[in-house]
Amino acid sequence: MKRRQLLLGLSAVVSSSAAVVGSGAFSAVEAERQLKIDVVADKDAYLTFEDISNYAVVNDGVIELQFDGQSPPLTEGNGLGPESVYEFSDVLFVQNNGNQEVELFSKYDGESVSDIHLTQSTDVNSSMGGKNQILTENNPSEPLGPGDAFNIGIVIDTAGMSPGTVNTTLDIVATSAQSE
């Protein structure tokens, strides 16, 4: 009889302990926290962009790329021709000022231009023989460690475009190299 009482007593203690501890699971949380955010010029951000070509112009600390013949001293041309693919090397300098490796790529979701991509120069001895590598989500840049930097270029495809001025946006994405 004492054995049964002891087992029942232990069972009650274990059951009540489990109820107190619980599983820790929850279905939703809303929490308000204070944030301090410093918005700085592109050249001072965690991911730095600096203009190193005549195609890059800084307006209010933000880099803009212009291929309209207005940024001297370019050439005698006034812009990009239709039904063409243009590749510009070494347009921007990018540096990782964060604390972890990142990989860089671009996304273009606009409809104004047929296609736009960032590029990264590859080593002359690589399988690509020193050509520029197009940076996409499935084919990002080599990991860029803290303090590391490289120059990036851009490829612009004007297929289906008529002469005129186009204003569009290219998303430059940096993701943690460890997140894969």
Rank of each mutant, 00 (worst) to 15 (best):
V40L: 10
F93Y: 13
L135D: 00
E101D: 13
K131G: 01
V91F: 02
G147C: 08
K131D: 04
S121H: 13
V58N: 10
Y46C: 12
A41V: 08
N138V: 01
D51R: 05
Y86D: 02
E142G: 01
V58C: 04
F105G: 00
S179F: 11
G79R: 02
T168S: 09
E30M: 03
G61T: 04
P72C: 01
A45Y: 03
M161C: 10
L47W: 07
N167W: 07
A45R: 13
S17Q: 10
D109K: 14
S23W: 08
N151S: 11
I63M: 09
V57W: 03
S11A: 15
S176V: 07
I37C: 12
I154S: 04
N54M: 05
L8M: 09
N139M: 09
D109Q: 15
L35E: 15
N151Q: 11
P143H: 01
T165E: 12
V113C: 05
L7Q: 10
I52C: 01
S162H: 02
K131Q: 14
V39W: 11
L170D: 01
A149N: 11
D51G: 10
D42Y: 01
A12S: 15
I134A: 08
S89P: 08
L144Y: 08
Y108W: 03
V57T: 07
D109V: 14
T122V: 06
N78K: 14
N99L: 14
T136E: 12
N167E: 10
N139P: 02
G69H: 04
N97I: 04
L74T: 00
I152H: 00
F49R: 08
T168N: 09
S106F: 03
Q133P: 03
D115S: 13
G153K: 00
L65A: 04
D157A: 06
D38V: 07
T168Y: 01
N139G: 07
E101L: 09
G130E: 06
L135S: 06
V166H: 06
K2I: 01
A174F: 13
V113H: 02
E103P: 00
N96G: 07
S16L: 14
Q5H: 12
I152G: 05
Q70G: 09
V14G: 08
A149W: 12
F49P: 03
I156R: 05
M161R: 05
V39C: 12
V85K: 14
T122S: 12
N54V: 00
T158Q: 06
Q120M: 11
A31C: 05
D42N: 06
P82F: 08
I134Y: 09
R4V: 13
G61E: 04
N96W: 03
A56E: 01
E137G: 08
T48C: 07
V57E: 10
Q133K: 15
